[in-house]
Design a protein around this nucleic acid. Sequence first.
DNA 1: CGAATATCAGTGACACTGAAATTA
DNA 2: CTAATTTCAGTGGCACTGATATTC
Lengths: 161, 161
Amino acid sequence: MHHHHHHHAAGADDPVGQLAEQLTRTFRRLRAGSARELAPLGLTFAQARVLRVIGHASEPMRIGDVAGRLEIVPRSATGIVDALEEAGLVERRRDTADRRSVFVTPTQAGRDLLARMGEARRENAERLFGRLTAEQRATLLELLVAINESADDDPAKRDVR
Amino acid sequence: MHHHHHHHAAGADDPVGQLAEQLTRTFRRLRAGSARELAPLGLTFAQARVLRVIGHASEPMRIGDVAGRLEIVPRSATGIVDALEEAGLVERRRDTADRRSVFVTPTQAGRDLLARMGEARRENAERLFGRLTAEQRATLLELLVAINESADDDPAKRDVR
DNA sequence: CGAATATCAGTGACACTGAAATTA
DNA sequence: CTAATTTCAGTGGCACTGATATTC
């Protein structure tokens, strides 16, 4: 209930606002760097995310599973899978048991690219997080996970795992 | 349903990859929440960012200054300022000394909206960072600032190596 | 029939590049 | 003439909503 009338610089007494701004900046950097690394591989940021989640799954994933994992609506996942399929990196296969569902699995080319992607990704992330010690990175990861676990409002809420 | 011994799931032995994924997720949440809070005010995420930086500046900012501050190219800043000006929230004024430059300042309506924005923003951020203690937030902010202070990676300047 | 799954069509927000106009 | 500042025009990435089969 205090009413100062002077102009305070954003964040001086608005810690959460400052957090939001810095988070935005960090993400934009991550994304820009990733895009640069992925472009030569013919992938976009979102496509790489989808390929990664599909490639690392122990079982074939459905479109809805992918969407849930990435916290996007199924319709969005469809488009990204379209691009990956057209590039020959993943394959669609209808579930014989439930013919509504579509299983998506990586092709050999997809797995190969995923491996190369890992290197590029590591380089980029290393450049971004390079200033942090291993301990600091662990702390950062811990804090982000804590935030993300308070999952309340998502566009396409769907837990997979 | 979940095998514990499948080969390296992304992040098990790829800490930076996990960091990137969690960072992406946190940002998407921040952005989605912000968009929800801002929509009733007639603002988008980027517009709010620009209005904030302009409103908090002690002196009138040029378009290029705004772009630099947000790490976007000047052309992008122009469009966002267009929208804000059309909404009557900011004013353009040519510099009389250097007639190439355009100063952007908030109108009274802009300042008023900025105040209301602060509340909505705080609520949203509070919901997002709510699970963290004050100390944890401080740590998170510190780490993000450390990351952002490394390597100026402006899309506008800096050429691709 | 209602519910779930994926897809089709359209829209919005955002930032990019390249080129033009103005002015220093 | 060269450089800086802003703006115009077009493009690409991305994820959204709403509607439409198809299948359970």
